[in-house]
């Protein structure tokens, strides 16, 4: 069922157009989008860990940068889907691609837990140079997971 869908996706006019013509252009936009996503996440995370911008409150940093993270993420998902459609069966069967998706899901779970649990007490530590352990742990985990996303993403190109 899934394999049939992937075969159909690769044979659509969109999949063929990306494979034959658009791939380099879409890839450029994908790299710009991921630079925006991962770079802004690193800036927010290093504040959360207490390594950078410690004189600014956490919310001062996050409120300014996270809208750009989300904008970049939406663009990365759209361009990522287009790249996937160009050779969907091969991507689906690729180990690095699967690991990248797993790491992205783990990063999303980490972010959700932070938003729903740790961030609830932000008023108590917003201006603190060194936020509580749970916040710092979420920051370290996020940096590690997004490094993994970049590494596995690059590895797809070498292993496809």
């Amino acid at each position: 069922m899934l394999l049939e869908f992937l075969q159909w996706l690769g044979a659509t006019r969109l999949g063929i157009a990306v494979a034959e013509d658009w791939f380099p252009k879409v890839e450029c936009v994908h790299v710009i989008a991921l630079a925006a996503v991962v770079g802004t996440i690193f800036l927010v995370d290093t504040r959360l860990i207490g390594l950078t911008s410690t004189r600014l409150s956490f919310r001062n940093i996050s409120s300014r940068l996270l809208p750009w993270t989300w904008a970049g993420f939406i663009l990365a998902v759209i361009t990522g889907f287009l790249l996937f459609s160009s050779n969907s069966v091969a991507y689906y069967e690729n180990g690095a691609f699967r690991l990248k998706l797993v790491l992205m899901i783990l990063a999303a779970v980490n972010m959700l837990y932070f938003e729903l649990v740790t961030f609830r007490t932000v008023a108590a530590w917003d201006g603190a140079a060194k936020p509580p352990f749970a916040a710092r742990f979420a920051g370290v985990l996020s940096v590690a997971l997004w490094c993994g996303v970049i590494m596995t993403g690059r590895w797809i190109g070498f292993s496809l």
């Binding site: 790299v31 710009i32 991921l34 630079a35 925006a36 996503v37 991962v38 770079g39 802004t40 690193f42 800036l43 004189r55 600014l56 409150s57 001062n60 940093i61 409120s63 300014r64 940068l65 750009w68 490094c147 970049i150 690059r154």
Partner: peptide
Amino acid sequence: ILCLACVFALGLALALKLAGGGFDSE
């Protein structure tokens, strides 16, 4: 690529401040 992402975000923060948006206390 990881270094590129860091430079891009640092440049973006600088550009946002130059454009007059955000990081109000600095």
